[in-house]
């Protein structure tokens, strides 16, 4: 199940976003303060994290920086009523957000942005899985290779012994 985290100090914003996202069938978690949102990061793996910019105890960019450290794969979005250049630049450079959305928002744009963020998230996760697979296979190959080398060192020629179809050892002529 795709999980989405929403963080905003204004509960009414959270409920309206919850309404907006409900038909999409994602699991939506809402937090009205940064502290409990941080708690959420420990319990769930999120595909997308959407944070307000200006909040009482920490700004959204600082929060997203934390989130990035904890869950590097989760896509980060800012939803801000601020819309000034400084906050935007900070969001992009420090928290590497995927998109900066402004309030009042366009419902369609929010949903579409989250959808494309989820796509990217899934690509990232898939990529990582494939990478892991390749890595384990490489490791297995390497172990096998090393074993062969070891055997060869112990008993020179042993890895080059050729066998017949019935398992009997063939003696080659070219040595």
């Amino acid at each position: 199940m795709i999980k989405i985290q929403l963080v905003d100090d204004e509960p009414n914003i959270l409920s309206s976003l919850r309404r907006l996202l409900k038909p999409q069938g994602w699991e939506v978690h809402t937090y009205d303060n940064v502290e409990s949102a941080l708690g959420g990061l420990l319990e769930h793996n999120y595909a997308v994290i959407v944070s307000d910019y200006q909040m009482p105890t920490a700004d959204g960019v600082t929060y997203l920086q934390f989130a990035k450290q904890r869950q590097p794969d989760a896509m980060r979005l800012v939803l801000s009523a601020h819309g000034d250049r400084t906050s935007m630049i900070k969001a992009i450079n420090q928290a590497e957000v995927y998109r900066y959305l402004s309030k009042p928002w366009n419902d369609y744009e929010v949903v579409a942005t989250i959808k494309s963020a989820i796509d990217l998230y899934q690509l990232k996760v898939e990529n990582r899985q494939l990478q892991n697979e390749v890595d384990t296979q490489k490791a297995m190959l390497r172990a096998r290779e090393q074993e062969l080398l070891r055997l060869e060192a112990e008993n020179p020629g042993i890895t080059r012994v050729q066998r017949d179809a019935d398992g009997s050892v063939l003696i080659s002529n070219n040595d």
Partner: peptide, 12 residues
């Protein structure tokens, strides 16, 4: 900022 928040959720 104060106005964009309520306008945002009322509109949505």
């Amino acid at each position: 900022h104060e106005i964009n928040n309520p306008v945002g959720y009322v509109y949505s």
